[in-house]
């Protein structure tokens, strides 16, 4: 069952990614990537390794977090419900089969695509800073999110109001549960990592909007849809989503601080500016070559 769902997921995300690479990245960047990929991999490798370690650690920690939380955590389900329970009920009352299908699709496929595509899109840039910022922000999301999970115990709307929030996703498409069960524990709803990672992508898409203007629009629409889907499907409260956006904001801001400051690759490369992404008529200004020397360029910041 799990294998079937996974295969389907990989197929759909691969298809979406291929189409988007053609639409947003373009032939020229892909051509350059073929010649420059070694140096880009070198630049992004350290943070990619850190992210991999964090993800591995996360999969181990997921078993420990609930045990720890029940000893030291605050159980916030009731205060959250008391504060905003009506909103989720209202949102749920808007349910139609089409919306349910759309949000279920977004929650599973759209979300994974949203996280995977920018990695490739930023890899296709000569300037590796966006890529490194993205990977750093992912790492921060997972790390800070895990810390919050330890301290906050909260069940999502579907656990408190099973009949209103008719666990739309799992009852309409039971097979998805095999997938999400591998990743999520039911007490880990504050903050919404779905929202925070999606928002992270959207925030970074805003920073790189001059390079990938169309992607910025798509990323924003998808990120908003992911955030709404978590509430529509009864998985998260509004407060979780807001906390997720705050976490994304913090992660992106911190990633901007960290990247360049503690850059291993730059020390190894002796601060020599690499070949910039010139010759691309779509985005002449995309190579922030000033970034590579460690100083922050201002024009692309929020």
């Amino acid at each position: 069952m799990l294998m079937r769902v996974l295969t389907q997921l990989v197929a759909v995300v691969a298809l979406l990614t291929l189409v988007s690479l053609a639409a947003f990245v373009g032939r020229y960047r892909l051509r350059d990537t073929r010649t420059e990929w070694r140096s880009r991999v070198r630049a992004a490798a350290p943070i990619a390794v850190v992210l991999a370690v964090v993800l591995l650690g996360n999969s181990v920690a997921r078993h420990l977090v609930p045990e720890l939380s029940w000893m030291i955590g605050w159980n916030l389900t009731w205060p959250i419900y008391d504060l905003e329970g009506q909103f989720i009920i209202w949102l749920q009352s808007q349910a139609t089969p089409t919306l349910t299908a759309y949000f279920s699709f977004v929650y599973i496929y759209g979300y994974v695509f949203l996280l995977v595509f920018p990695v490739l899109a930023y890899f296709a840039l000569s300037n590796t800073r966006p890529l490194r910022e993205l990977l750093t922000a992912y790492t921060l999301n997972y790390t800070l999110g895990l810390v919050l999970y330890v301290f906050v115990i909260a069940y999502g709307p579907r656990n408190l109001m099973p009949e209103l929030v008719d666990a739309l996703l799992y009852d309409t498409y039971p097979q998805y549960q095999h997938l999400t069960r591998q990743v999520n524990r039911n007490t880990n709803v504050f903050p919404s990592l779905h929202t925070s990672l999606a928002a992270t992508v959207a925030f970074l898409a805003y920073r790189t909007r001059t390079v990938y203007p169309k992607w910025f629009v798509v990323a924003t629409v998808l990120a908003v849809s992911v955030a709404v889907s978590t509430m529509y499907l009864g998985i998260h409260w509004l407060i979780d989503v807001l906390a997720g956006i705050a976490l994304a904001h913090a992660s992106v801001a911190l990633a901007g601080q960290f990247v360049g400051r503690w850059s291993l690759s730059e020390r190894l490369n002796g601060r020599v500016p690499a070949v910039s992404d010139t010759g691309d008529d779509n985005a002449p200004q995309e190579a922030h070559s000033s970034d590579r020397s460690g100083s922050h360029s201002a024009h692309n910041r929020e």
Binding site: N159, L160, M161, P162, E163, A167
Partner: peptide, 14 residues
């Protein structure tokens, strides 16, 4: 208990 453990208990409780 939450609905994941026992759907009827939480509905009765509410």
């Amino acid at each position: 208990v939450p609905a994941d453990s026992d759907r009827e208990s939480i509905q009765l409780t509410r």
